[in-house]
């Protein structure tokens, strides 16, 4: 775990409030697993707390990356992300990481199916690269959002996945409705036996996908998000209820016990 003072290399405006920020990192950070995250602070005393951001890319994830960099995909949502979006080349960043556990590759005989909700697609570019490096076939992806503008990096995902099924709440791209619709059809066709679901997005989506995974008995890993003050296990602000091995429900920390948790452990 490093606490780096680094600087912005570029901060790409992807439109509709979505940005991809790139900053310099030392070699040790290049070992990060997909869905691990950084706590990033911007200069100045406001906001007080750093914000958690999933690692999106490292060396070689995107074709035009500079070496020795990391990328973070984010959407302007509140004070912290708005400040981040205003930073240009050379601006200073305080970056703590790598944090959390990250996605593991699927077991032999299973293929990754990525399920992303809007900006929840952030951890998947690095995961797709990891799958390719480990000799796995390109995964399929179900990518849902409110509207067509809320599907950042869509063309990159289309180039990098075997297939991308789109859903939007307003029907402006792909199927009108939720990611659970195409997912349920796939699982009803019996594909669940050969799949491992990797899911990131808003909590209601995670819950709905987890229910389907449970109904069809498919392994399912969720990359969770929660408000957190520290990112390394001490503030206890980011807990979620989970079923312990003893069957009892307890609180675990998204930052160090997650952010990836098996869906069947969640006690929502």
């Amino acid at each position: 775990m490093l606490d780096l003072t680094t600087s912005v290399i570029r901060n790409l405006d992807l439109g509709h409030g979505n940005y991809l920020i790139e900053f310099g990192v030392p070699d040790s950070i290049q070992q990060m697993k997909p869905a691990q995250f950084f706590m990033i602070g911007t200069p100045g005393s406001e906001p007080l707390l750093r914000r958690p951001y999933s690692v999106c890319g490292l060396n070689g994830t995107f074709p035009d990356n500079q070496r020795g960099t990391a990328q973070v995909l984010y959407k302007v949502y509140g004070k912290g992300t708005r400040l981040l979006s205003g930073l240009g080349k050379g601006a200073e960043l305080q970056v703590l990481g790598p944090l959390g556990n990250g996605f593991d590759l699927p077991d032999t005989g299973r293929r990754a199916l990525l399920v992303a909700g809007g900006i929840g697609s952030a951890p998947f570019p690095l995961f797709i690269r990891h799958l390719a490096e480990a000799g796995h076939p390109a995964p399929r992806m179900i990518y849902g959002a409110r509207s067509q503008g809320d599907l950042p990096l869509l063309s990159w995902f289309r180039d990098s996945c075997e297939e991308v099924l789109l859903t939007t709440d307003d029907g402006s791209a792909g199927e009108a409705g939720r990611v659970t619709q195409p997912l349920e059809r796939l699982l009803e066709q019996g594909e669940g036996e050969r799949l491992h679901l990797y899911v990131c997005g808003p909590d209601p989506m995670l819950k709905a996908v987890a229910r389907l995974a449970s109904r069809f008995d498919v392994p399912c890993d969720l990359a969770l998000e929660a408000p957190m003050a520290c990112g390394f296990g001490v503030c206890l602000g980011c807990v979620v209820p989970v079923h312990g091995d003893d069957g009892e429900v307890r609180f675990e920390r998204v930052c160090v016990d997650g952010p990836v948790m098996p869906a069947q452990r969640m006690a929502w």
Binding site: A226, P227, M228, L236, G237, C238, V239, P241, F251
Partner: peptide, 10 residues
């Protein structure tokens, strides 16, 4: 075990 989330707010 402590309180259920949400536990913090900036």
């Amino acid at each position: 075990h402590g309180n259920p989330p949400q536990r913090i707010a900036e």
